[in-house]
Every structure is written in C-alpha cells, then in structure tokens.
Amino acid sequence: MINILGNIFLVTGLLMLSGRKMKTAIILLAMQSLSLSMIAFFSGYALGGLNWHMFIIGSLTILVKVIALPVLLYRLVNELNPNEPIGLSVKSLLSFSVGIVLVLFSYSYVVPEFLSSIHVDSYLLSAALSSILLGCFYMISRSCVLDQIIGIILMENGLFLSSLAITGGMPLIVELGIFFDILVGVLVMVGITYQIKNSCQSLDIKNLNRLRG
C-alpha cells in the first residue's frame, strides 16, 4: 500500500512538469500532499495501533499542504495572473523527459549506490529524492514567480518524505517547526509576489534580471 502511495507521489510530481497550466499544477500539488499525508497515516498504522505522532503529522499535512497552501495559491492565480501567457524556459515535452531521466537517476543510481547504507524497506526514499530534483527542475523550467513557490513546496514535500522514510518521523517539535517554516515562508513569498506585480506589472521573473549589482 505504501508503495502505491509512493508511486502516486512520484507520478503527480512528474505530471506537474509536463503541464502548462498553473491551476492544474496546484491541484496536482494538493494531490501529492494528500498522498504524503496518507503515507504518514499508513506508516503510523504499520508501526502498530493508533500512532499519535504520525497522526498529528498526517493531519497537519492535510491542513497545511492539502488545504491551506493550495487554496491560497489558487486564489492568488485567479487574482494576479488570469490569462497572462508566461513562457516556459524549457519546452514541456523536453522537461517531461528530463523529469523521467531524473527519476531514473535517483531510482537506479543514487539510492542503491550512493545511499546504500540507509536501509529503507520501500521505494519511498527514491520517490522522495526524485521529488527534490523534480522540484528544483520545475523552478528552473518556469519563469513565473508563482511557479517558483510551487516548486519550493514540491521540493519541501520531497524532503519531508525522505525524513519520514529514513527516520520514521523526527521529534515532534522539529516537525512543527518545519510546518511553521513552510507556512511563513509561503506567506512571505506571496507578499513579495504582490510587490513584484505592483512594481513590474508582470509576474515574469525575467523582469528581475536588472536587479544585479
């Protein structure tokens, strides 16, 4: 079951790379977060009985990453970027193939060769690592400010899953700190997005090129 959820996690990430529409990407992100929370619930269940730690993590994931952040981003897209065409730095077919290469890279090389000392029963670690690389590439391949935020959350999901897979959850206070961190981080980024929109009349990050010293 966990492997199926891991696959959902991976596939949603890949599909995000191939799509052009931002709204689709946000929905896919919410789905990925949902699978992340399900993984938390299930691994808690597998550890035996009702595991409060995992339960809290799973619920928080649903609350923050499945509901709060996607809703926030969705409203932001409606408000700021109704139909503005923003080009991709990398064509979508190409970026999808790069995504597949990255997934293969982490499944067949990094995890079995490089991280072989870490024993994880399922493919969760590979899925997590792929998601980190996919998130980074997502940010590279798009030039809209909002896409950068989505990419960050995608990477964060991957990091969170890897911590879940390796250690079975960090101390609760650290987990809470991470949630708070991503929430505040996204709020600040949203604020800056408004700022960029106001001063550049556009959300294209190419406008920021002349900021260099």
Binding site: S89, L133, C136, F137, M139, I140, S141, S143, Q148, I205, K206, L208, N209, R210, L211, R212
Partner: peptide, 15 residues
C-alpha cells in the same frame, strides 16, 4: 547574469 533560473541551474548542477 541576474537570471534566477540560471542561478537555480547552478544549484541544481551542483546537487
């Protein structure tokens, strides 16, 4: 260059 995408590429390639 000032291009954020390019900076991200640096980070990505390093990783």
């Amino acid at each position: 260059s000032g291009n954020i995408n390019l900076y991200l590429v640096y980070i990505f390639l390093t990783l």
